[in-house]
Simulated assay, not measured.
Amino acid sequence: MKKLNTLMGVALTCYAHFSLAGPIETLNEYNLVVLNDLTSTSEVEGKTIVAGDLSGSASNYGTHLAQNDSSVGSVLVVGSDLSSGTTVNANGHEVIIAGTNNGNINSNSVSNDASQYDFDLIKSEFINFSGYLSELAVNSVLLTSSNNQPSAASFNVGDSVGNDPAVFNITSESFFENNLIQQYDIDLNGQSPSTIIINVSGEMINDSNLGNAVGNITSDVFRENIIWNFFEATEIDLVKQINGSVLAPFADLTNATPIEGSLVVNNFQQNGEVHDALFTGVISYDPDANNSTYPVKVPEPSMFFILLTALAGMMMWNRSKS
């Protein structure tokens, strides 16, 4: 029995490693993913992963999650250190600090075991996923003023999209830096897109001159299906509320108002809340079928693999007994 338990443990450990969630699943589960460092004085309503250090005077996590519910898991996972002077409020949930804890944590459970999180893999998956989205064929268009007069702008879904993803390609200059846009919304145009992907080119993003979102785009039904993909941005400064999930794997991002969706970013100076309108859109993503090099899908282990693992474990066990 002891031998069987040892082999099963080895096999299940390998199984867990080979069934890591991909970026879409992570967006479904985590409200905030910081691929490097987070400095925060605000709150995240859902769960957070920080691959690097966490600093800032005080921050809150899991504020909209049910307390004393073991299925929630860790609401905050920090891959490196919690800085001195930093206070973390976990609202009754578990926290993982893999490095040195120099701060203060209000939590029912604090662990240093982050072994189930492969931070390098998470980063590479999101970088590749962002690149993949940026290359999707455009089928929808942003309509702005044609006479250089202040007016409303509209993200118009193409009339042949149907249930497929609606894909927009815009530049930072044409939208975020366009002071003629007084307000903006999304027009479904009679379609039912499975998700709305807004690819934004440009390295420096600042929305201080942009008008406010109105109408459909401000409802959770829309927010939960939107990805703003800043696939080449290195610096993003948001002073207006953004509706939908934000994917910016290379960017240092600062916000002053809420982000209404999941956020993936390189470094984050958080001065506004991240709300739990988690991404629930549907994207068919198969790197092999697209002949690309985006290694996001992690194949489930076959029974053959598990058998080989068990046999290897048996051999190691026999050697240790001899």
Rank of each mutant, 00 (worst) to 15 (best):
F175Y: 11
N60I: 02
M1P: 15
I217V: 11
G313P: 04
A289W: 00
N266L: 09
T26S: 06
G313W: 01
N89W: 05
L307P: 07
S70G: 03
N318K: 15
L133N: 02
T87K: 15
N147M: 14
V264I: 12
I283F: 00
L308R: 11
G62R: 08
A98H: 05
N106V: 15
N199T: 03
P301L: 09
V214E: 13
V221R: 01
G272Q: 07
D69V: 05
P299V: 00
L210R: 03
T234V: 08
D53S: 15
F168D: 01
L27T: 01
S219T: 14
L4P: 04
E273S: 13
Y15P: 02
P249F: 08
L38D: 06
E125G: 04
V141L: 09
D220G: 13
S59W: 05
S71A: 10
I205V: 15
A66D: 04
L65W: 09
V161D: 04
Y132A: 00
T26H: 05
S151K: 10
E232P: 02
E45K: 08
S83D: 06
H275F: 03
N108V: 09
D113E: 06
L188N: 09
I306Y: 07
T257R: 10
L278E: 10
S55G: 10
R319M: 09
N216G: 14
S109L: 14
K321S: 15
F268Q: 11
T254Y: 11
L136E: 00
S19I: 03
S55N: 10
V167W: 02
I24Y: 00
T39A: 13
P23I: 01
V75R: 09
Q191S: 08
L311T: 02
G215S: 08
S134W: 00
F18E: 09
G22F: 01
N89Y: 11
S302V: 02
A137S: 13
S55W: 09
V33K: 01
S80M: 07
N229C: 07
L311N: 12
L278Y: 01
E25G: 02
N199P: 06
V282P: 01
F230M: 06
A213H: 04
K240Y: 08
T171V: 04
V265A: 14
Y117V: 15
S71L: 07
G215Q: 08
F230K: 10
E45I: 04
L247P: 00
A98G: 13
L4R: 03
G190Y: 11
V246R: 14
Y117F: 12
I226L: 05
I170Y: 05
L54H: 07
L278A: 12
S302L: 05
I217H: 04
Y15F: 13
V10H: 15
P258Y: 03
G56I: 11
V10F: 08
L65Y: 10
V34F: 10
A256K: 15
M314Q: 12
M316G: 12
V274D: 12
E300N: 03
N60G: 05
G85Q: 13
F250D: 02
K47W: 04
F18P: 00
F222W: 07
Q149R: 11
T218C: 04
Y15K: 11
L188W: 08
A256S: 13
N225V: 12
S40H: 06
N189T: 05
V72R: 11
G85F: 14
